[in-house]
Amino acid sequence: MGVRDELGKDLDGLDAGVGGLQTVTATVFDVTEDGKVNISMQGADIYGVACTDAYRNRKAGDTVAVRRGAVPVVLWRLGDDPADTEQADIEQIATQTAQDVQVVRAATYGTGAPAGSGWQTASAVYVRKVDGKIEVYFQVASVADPSPGTPSVPAPKAVSITPSASGTWRSGRPDDYAAAPTQGDWTGRGNRRGGWFYGSSIQSACAGKTVSKMTVAFARKTGAGVNAKRPLHLYLHAHSSPPSGQLNLGSGPEELLSLSVGAKGTATLPAAWVAALASGTAKGLAIYAGGRADYMAVTGGKITISFS
């Protein structure tokens, strides 16, 4: 049964003596990969709570209204008017869209001079390509109407790089029993380390450009480790593809992101790591931890590269 059906059933069956639909406030501390949320409510942590369509742009830290019951449901977010908080995002999307579209209002031709006013005779035409766009310059004998200025060249669009492979290593060799990159040791058979591999894609994407930021997105699988938030212990590595022997770790660890069970999140990589990945000194990312405390399995690994 869907969230709407559950909510409708509860509303239809309310007893007047109960005082109506019972809601309480809660705090979201993680958003899961399937769009649900993990919340703190009345002193307890509850995982995998479904949400109505009214709760959009879900993120950790939100204060929300929750329908209590055996199956709690997040009804909506409490806070500022979204019209204020979303304006910057809308403007950014509109600006990017305008930059992606090359516009000429009209292109006509004929054997005679064009009709109407404002036309200028061009004695020569020049063209060039800048940032993948065509620029056209017309040389005229005299300027009857001032030319518009040439817009500045925008920063290259961000690029997302998906791992070409991933895996887990234990005792110096690949661990085929792990379905996703894993850190730590739950059973006492040895610490695991997981890795994501990108070939030369990161270095190629950065060639000839100025990198301003790299972020990486991860999601924590259910059924591995404790439910509470635990940190990913991130490392660099220098393997372009999965090694047949040990996955050797580079710089690290960095605890850039903590996730509860089922949650997804994005981490911003340190500047030194960005430089290493962009130059090809480092090739990918890894996770490693000792013992049970931070044991978890992780999926994702998509790196987004922003330029300036």
Rank of each mutant, 00 (worst) to 15 (best):
H237V: 06
D84L: 12
G69Y: 13
S171I: 08
A275T: 06
D89A: 13
V74K: 08
S152E: 05
S212M: 08
P148N: 08
R170F: 03
R56M: 04
F138H: 10
S258R: 13
G48K: 01
I46S: 06
T95E: 14
F29C: 03
Y109I: 02
T266Q: 13
R56W: 00
Y109V: 09
Q246I: 10
G79H: 09
W119A: 08
A205I: 11
I287L: 12
P156M: 14
R128V: 12
K59L: 11
G262H: 05
P154D: 11
T222Y: 05
L277Q: 01
Y295P: 00
K221G: 03
L78V: 13
L249F: 11
W196L: 08
G250S: 05
T97E: 05
A144D: 15
G195P: 14
M214F: 08
E33Q: 11
A267W: 11
R230F: 02
A98S: 15
V153N: 13
E255Q: 14
Q99H: 10
A205H: 07
A275L: 00
S306Y: 12
V49I: 15
G43Q: 10
W186A: 11
T25M: 13
P270T: 05
D131M: 11
T85F: 02
T215K: 13
L256F: 01
R173G: 15
S204D: 12
V66I: 11
L11K: 06
P148I: 05
C51F: 04
P72I: 12
S200A: 14
G245V: 04
Y177H: 06
T215C: 09
A141C: 02
C206G: 09
R230S: 12
R170G: 00
A141M: 02
D81M: 05
W76S: 14
P82K: 06
A238G: 08
A50S: 15
D80E: 14
G265I: 02
V31E: 08
S308T: 15
